[in-house]
Design a protein around this nucleic acid. Structure first.
Lengths: 178, 178
DNA sequence: ACCTGAACACCGTTCAAGT
DNA sequence: ACCTGAACACCGTTCAAGT
């Protein structure tokens, strides 16, 4: 048996499943999306999904990886824009996927797979934010705590929809630092 | 038929169910706790729960109300302590129920019942925090945004466990205000 | 009024069987 | 290697039947 026989097809197929799942997870939510509906949307049988992914949680992690890759590409594509414009772009993207954020938080308490992804994700975002803060000339000693405060604020805004002005007031207060 | 016939018994029974559910929801999580296990823990049949609560979400709201009442009483009981001591007490209590917090966030996106409870809860906590800030002599115009930033930070710390020192660093940065 | 046992539609997952 | 249909254990919820 030859290794990597038709790897292209396998990847294409699993990508289709991931895309179908990504749409449904974002719109309907992870818990309320059945494996059957993912299969239907991908034009396959429920059991076929299990040939590509170990279980529903593994499918979620694949979806998260896919969205993260997309987001990092989108971020790179607009490197020309200002720091605050890019931050707003990230917030908007995350807002579209707030149901995924809550799902990750909920599952992190029980699933080690998701918990691992979650902390890796925050290591990445913390590093990105820290680098931006460093370039803004922020005192090095305060950077880690500030990066965390930034992440917490963004997640808070996702979880608690506020009128635009109040949202801006919070962000302004956050960035009003000595 | 007399109104309020044996209201004591009815309340006592539903309180037993709520307490059983509160323990399981906090330990196992809302989604992973079955109505059957709540019933078993309360010494009744699954269907009996539905005589006291419309559905699983209504049971969750009853649990949340119960915990909130307990927390407000506990807060009042230690009115003598300092403001920061009381805040730490609240954070510790919430940490024990972080699974409830994620459940509320996740369900708020789809359930109007839970979403309503969620915003009522935050109106209350915002008011409490704002009052504390007012008494600390904070500029009135900045209070609403500061209260929100405080809530977001507390929730962020619940969702992303950090070493004690880093946790303190974030809280210190938050309270380091002109 | 209160509680139950049997039943319903649905869920994630498995497995023997096909190609 | 890849995909399926039938089956399994479980879930939240309903309902007719009991007291």
């Amino acid at each position: 048996m030859p290794r990597n026989r038709r790897p292209r097809d396998r990847e294409a197929k699993s990508a289709e499943i991931v895309e179908a799942a990504a749409t449904l997870f974002a719109q309907v939510g992870f818990d309320k999306t059945s494996m059957a509906s993912v299969a239907r949307s991908a034009g396959i049988t429920t059991t076929t999904i299990y040939w590509y992914f170990q279980d529903k949680e593994a499918l979620l992690v694949a979806v998260l990886d896919h969205l993260l890759t997309e987001m990092l590409q989108g971020l790179q594509a607009q490197a020309a824009h200002s720091w605050t414009d890019r931050l707003l772009w990230v917030v908007e993207r995350l807002q579209e996927h707030s149901k995924l954020v809550t799902a990750v938080h909920a599952l992190s308490a029980t699933s080690t797979t998701v918990a691992t992804w979650h902390s890796a994700f925050h290591e990445l975002t913390d590093a990105l934010l820290a680098e931006e803060l460093r370039q803004s000339g922020v005192d090095a000693a305060q950077i880690p705590a500030m990066a965390r405060l930034g992440v917490f604020t963004i997640e808070g805004l996702l979880m608690h929809p506020l009128p635009r002005e109040e949202q801006r007031a919070v962000l302004e207060l956050l960035s009003a630092r000595p």
